[in-house]
Design a protein around this nucleic acid. Structure first.
Lengths: 103, 103
DNA sequence: CTGTATCCCCTTTGATACTG
DNA sequence: CAGTATCAAAGGGGATACAG
């Protein structure tokens, strides 16, 4: 549960709602993630059955990451959460300004 | 955004959907949170306008924490996420067992 | 009761270098 | 391209003690 909800797990799942990605393409898409953290995150998601890893034994190697059905369902609710948070951003920003002015 | 979505922030918001809580009651409700982290979390949520802090100048002091409207909206989507995750737990557990058996 | 302040560990993460 | 290995740094988070 913690692995899904962490920063990189969320971003990777949401990015994969757009379709399959190869490792480095996904890394470019998930801005700021290091190789290590993306590899670690994808392993955890694969272990939980939320992402599949399709290796093509070519040279250079191609590895495609794709959401499974459970992964897609979770990614969708993550997106709903992100949308809800973004909708509140203006309110949060003004609340912060008020708070900071008073403290 | 990070403060809402972190572990203790999520648990505090969801707990407060049940109604107002005083500090130590909330601390007992959010199992495992330390004084320090709960205070820190509540400050962040108050600053973002998601929680209000009502101080009663009695002795001993009473402080009630209550969700604001934006806080309630976000808490609801967090609950939706938690429910969606819980619905996938059986699938995740069997996926893990399969994965671990193969690796 | 409702917190704040301090200390400190230890996990997470980023950088870097290397392999198949 | 797709990673793994190693190391160092930073910060989260718990325990404890104290204050209003």
């Amino acid at each position: 549960m913690e692995t899904v909800a962490d920063n990189w797990g969320t971003l990777a799942l949401v990015a994969l709602t757009e379709g399959s990605y190869r490792f480095n393409a996904l890394r470019r898409r998930v801005d700021g993630v290091s190789e290590k953290m993306l590899a670690q995150t994808l392993h955890a998601l694969e272990r939980d059955g939320l992402v599949t890893r399709d290796v093509q034994a070519t040279f250079p190697p191609r590895v495609e990451y794709t959401l499974t059905a459970p992964g897609a369902r979770i990614a969708e609710t993550l997106r709903a959460l992100i949308d809800a948070l973004e909708a509140e951003i203006p309110a949060i920003m003004t609340a912060r300004e008020d708070y900071d002015r008073r403290h």
